[in-house]
């Protein structure tokens, strides 16, 4: 029973990682860059939702929507201002810029909201689910997180695989030049990708803060790194890879925390990543690079 409970918690945490990892992997696929500021969008989403709900006293749904809108605009703006001018710069310059943006967001949050943790009010009002005569208790947050994440993943998969705009995104991720010959606006596609990724990060932020209510300017950093690991784990650039990688990572983290050691669970997560990459350098679903004649 205890194992089942851990498994459910792992899936829940992992599905948030998956939602965040989608942002990493899509931006990598389309813009060929690692957006290390992605994790901090999560934190901004958390704060926006917190302000709307706690300071303004508005309903949680308004808080969630505000977080999504602000993060979407923020994501598009960051791309336009910080990354777009570097479109043809060496990737190291882009990487350093992304790390800079990450610190900028954290320090701005520190300036605006201070260093005291804010106690986030959960957006979930659902009663815990008691199964097997109460021997297995699953919190409302856990259930909502899994359900919302599953819906997001399904919707995104349908969007990318079944719509013309989704196909255009895949086309841009494969060959920007050929995509332009087809009349696809690459800059608009990159903006759309950042918008989607940031909106997902906002939702992930609200879900994470609902499960772990202490909100700090550094709240997004660790989940951001874990989600990045999840994206690499699943095969960076691959959408189903990010989903599988995220969920697996969450499960590994919770199980190792419980059964091995809560102190070194993060180290175990990274060790697993290293092993996977030794066996499959491109990740679980990543394309092994090969040329076709």
């Amino acid at each position: 029973m205890e194992f089942l409970s851990n498994l459910v918690n792992g899936i829940s945490l992992g599905s948030v990682y998956a939602v965040i990892a989608l942002g990493y992997t899509m931006v990598y696929g389309i813009a060929r860059m690692l957006n290390f500021a992605h994790g901090d969008i999560i934190m901004v989403g958390g704060y926006i939702c917190f302000i709307v709900m706690t300071s303004l006293g508005l309903p949680s749904i308004v808080g969630i929507l505000a977080a999504v809108v602000v993060c979407t605009i923020l994501g598009i703006t960051i791309e336009r201002v910080a990354y777009k001018p570097l479109r043809s710069a060496p990737s190291l310059a882009v990487l350093i810029t992304a790390i800079g943006v990450s610190y900028l967001l954290q320090n701005l949050a520190l300036l605006i909201w201070g260093s005291d943790p804010k106690s986030f009010t959960s957006v979930v009002s659902m009663e815990p689910l008691r199964l097997f005569d109460g021997s297995l208790v699953i919190t409302g947050e856990t259930i909502v997180t899994i359900v919302v994440s599953a819906i997001i993943m399904a919707a995104l998969t349908l969007f990318v695989n079944r719509t013309k705009v989704g196909h255009a995104m895949l086309a841009v991720s494969e060959d920007k030049g050929a995509a332009q010959l087809m009349g696809i606006n690459v800059n608009a596609t990159i903006s759309l990708t950042f918008a989607i990724g940031s909106a997902l990060a906002a939702v992930a932020g609200v879900l994470l803060c609902s499960a772990q209510p202490s909100l700090l300017p550094t709240t997004g950093a660790m989940p951001g790194i874990k989600a990045f690991v999840a994206a690499v784990f699943g095969g960076i650039g691959s959408i189903p890879g990010a989903m599988i990688g995220g969920v697996l990572l969450g499960i590994i983290e919770i199980l190792s925390k419980y059964y091995i050691s809560s102190q070194i669970s993060d180290a175990i997560v990274f060790a697993v990543l290293i092993v996977v990459l030794l066996v499959r350098p491109a990740g679980i679903l990543g394309k092994q690079i090969r040329e076709k004649v």
């Binding site: 196909h167 895949l170 086309a171 494969e174 060959d175 010959l181 009349g183």
Partner: peptide
């Protein structure tokens, strides 16, 4: 990306089809 709307397009060297589509 605006040129195709004028009725001009290119079949590029090396085909460059979208392999995953």
């Amino acid at each position: 990306y605006k040129i195709i709307k004028l009725g001009l397009t290119q079949v590029p060297e090396g085909r460059r089809v979208f392999a995953n589509l």
